[in-house]
Amino acid sequence: MSTIALAAPAVMPAAPARTSAYVVLAPSCLVLTMFFALPMGVMIGMSFTDGETLAPTFAHYQRFFSDGLSLAGLYRTAMMSILVALSVTVLGYPIAYFLARSRSRWRAVVFALALAPELAGVVLRTYGWLIILEDRGFINDALMNLGLVASPLPLSKNLFAVVVGLTHVVLPFGILSLTTSIQGIDPNLERAAQMLGASRLSVVRHVILPLSVPGIVSSLLISFTMAASAYATPALLGGARFKVLATMIYEQVLFYIDWRFAAVMAVALLVMMLTVSFLGIRYEARRSARRSNREGERS
């Protein structure tokens, strides 16, 4: 991202037109200050101040960590995001492997099928899962018509439904990062292992999987952060029975009108996401340090 700006030796302005450059930059900075930086600052400030006296206080945080409901919401958010991250990565892996290695004419079809849902928008897909998983929906209707179950299975308004819906929403992103990573593995390594008598299974286990760990990690991270910050899918598929931080924040603002508590929840969500992203960045840094070490030893 920031490397883009650095890696731009191509263009040389004739004379430094500094003032005009700052002038054209001003509108973007103004908009982002007014509607991003200031609001974030004010919100974080509100989470640390008393509503009446504006005196600094940790009371809202104490309330958050002593209140069973909020902690349960935090736990549900983490649980849901971990499950989504795992299922996206497991389901995405075969597709990604196919996309990275196949040269058949089906490749384009699979690619389109795997990524097209992204254009459909979150509501359409979540609505699709609602129709499928509802008490009187597709699956329960079929099962009851066939006489396999007497009463509808509890498939919606719970952790299961939210994880299914979010896995569907996030899957294209997981597939993309896994595909990029598998494409980077030299196919000759697989061929060499096979020629030396390794079975397909052990090629997968001892060559492909270990070498695609960076892709697996980035798929897990992107899925976790997207799931943790999702709003519409948990709201519709989880409903009032399965609340996560995102839907609880909305309730605090619009129903309970408890702004400071909403701010605390938003900060909690933000900290959770930044922690996970930070772990990812540190992993990436360590990996490239190890690699340059190895290369240093070799030369």
């Binding site: 609001p39 974030m40 603002v253 938003a266 969500l269």
Partner: peptide, 12 residues
């Protein structure tokens, strides 16, 4: 996250 940006803007 978008939801955090949203709540920040409405509170502000």
């Amino acid at each position: 996250p978008q939801i955090v940006k949203g709540v920040a803007i409405v509170l502000f």
